[in-house]
Computed example of a mutant assay.
Amino acid sequence: MCINHTNRRDFLKITAATGAAVAGVSALAAPASADAHDHAAQPGDKMALTNVRIFDGDQITSRRTVVIENGRIGISTLGARRIDCGGAVLLPGLTDAHIHLRDVNTLHALAGSGVTTGLDMATFPPSLVNSLRGLPGLTDIRSAGTPAVAPGSPQSQIPAFPSDAVLTAPEQATQFVRSRVAEGSDYIKIIIDEPGLSPETIKAVTTAAHSAGKLVMAHATSTATVVRALDAGVDMIHHVPMDSALSASVAARYVSSGTVAVPTLTMMEGFGNLGIPGMNYAAAEGSVTALRRAGARILAGTDSNLTPGIPVQPPYGISLHHELELLVRAGLTTREALRATTSLPAQAFGLRDRGAVRIGNRADLVLIDGDPLADITATRAVRRVWVGGIEYAPVTG
């Protein structure tokens, strides 16, 4: 059963163009040592994190030393300031594969919770996105910019929404993609709904984006729209159906086509709790279970936002830890959940300099207490965060 028009309009607002400012910043727990607290990392500072156990993508290693030098993971400890981490676990910086940016407070909240890469799924104008790029010591971002939408959609009615993103025919697809590329969008987003963009238009946007060397993200919240996205050949499908769980055959299509899933269970859980007919969280969870059984690639994304009028607003940063817990409840192993927020998004988005604690990679690192392979909630126990080799320090005052 498809989501009715009223509920569909409510749900489509999830991907409205902007998030909103966060009210505060999640605090870090006590640092690994008094010496570490007194000497936060600065750009170019060389450090040796000693006595750390590393999540290497498969297991938690024995105690080792990780060098940070010039924003990268280095080799030699010569001349490095040593920080004894006392056996704490070091994770690659976490990635949230579905957020909505608002302002610099967004980046503070993300970094404070260990999210060192944020993948924005719809924000405009381009000047806002560009103002948040490359800020030293704060979460690194990528963005879809303005998504392609249908006439009459909630997004199309947002004041100042770019008119060239409201598509009425496939012939507009090439210019839409050109405009997004010119504005600096890192990938292209399409809102797929019923009624909405025609299958021909969705396919045309996908083809134009691929010709421009851009990945295509699709918003799809029902089984029918997921199938439409798969038919069009998009690269990633964000959200999962809430009308009915994906069948094994549809889940298998993700695998055969190489399509990546970003379920955003945190958002789906929130809408499921509203009691809206046709929005059943059990269907969303069941869809993830089916995707995992099929062997699909699954990424962790929260749909964090503070967009006015949206009834579900996962908080930036801390909600990613809840997303990992929901993925585990849906059938992923703790190892798979950790990969869903580290190595897999790096691979899927072509971010080859992150996602693993590896020499030469960006020094995006999260130090936590506990063993997340034994208990995924251990990711919440953030002790310290480095973004590009700079230790994150919460804002005060």
Rank of each mutant, 00 (worst) to 15 (best):
G233Y: 03
Y254R: 04
T259F: 02
G184S: 10
S185M: 04
A252I: 06
M217P: 14
T201S: 15
A208I: 01
A248I: 07
L215S: 11
A245N: 08
A209R: 03
G213F: 02
S247T: 13
T223N: 11
D193E: 08
V260F: 00
I202C: 08
T206A: 04
D186E: 03
R178I: 05
V216E: 01
A252M: 04
T225G: 06
V255R: 13
S257D: 14
V216Y: 09
V250T: 12
V216H: 10
A208Y: 03
L246Q: 02
I237R: 01
R253F: 05
A224P: 11
V250Y: 04
R253G: 13
V216P: 09
L215T: 15
S198K: 00
K214C: 14
A209F: 03
D186C: 09
I192T: 12
A212E: 00
Y254H: 11
I191N: 07
G184I: 10
L215H: 12
A251F: 06
V216M: 04
I190M: 05
A212H: 07
H238W: 09
L197H: 03
E200Y: 15
S179E: 01
A245K: 00
G196M: 00
E194P: 11
P195Y: 12
S211V: 12
I202H: 11
H238K: 13
D231N: 15
S244E: 08
T207R: 12
A182H: 14
S179K: 00
G196V: 07
A232Q: 02
A204T: 01
T206K: 02
G233I: 09
V177H: 01
K214A: 06
H239E: 03
Y254V: 13
K214V: 12
G213W: 04
A220C: 14
M217Q: 11
I202P: 01
L246W: 03
R178Y: 03
P199S: 14
S198M: 03
A248F: 00
P241A: 13
L215P: 10
V205M: 02
I191E: 04
A232E: 01
K214R: 13
M236P: 08
L230Q: 08
S222D: 07
T223I: 10
V227L: 10
V216D: 01
L230K: 05
D243C: 12
V177D: 00
K189I: 00
T223H: 03
T221S: 14
A232T: 09
Q175P: 10
D193W: 06
S249A: 15
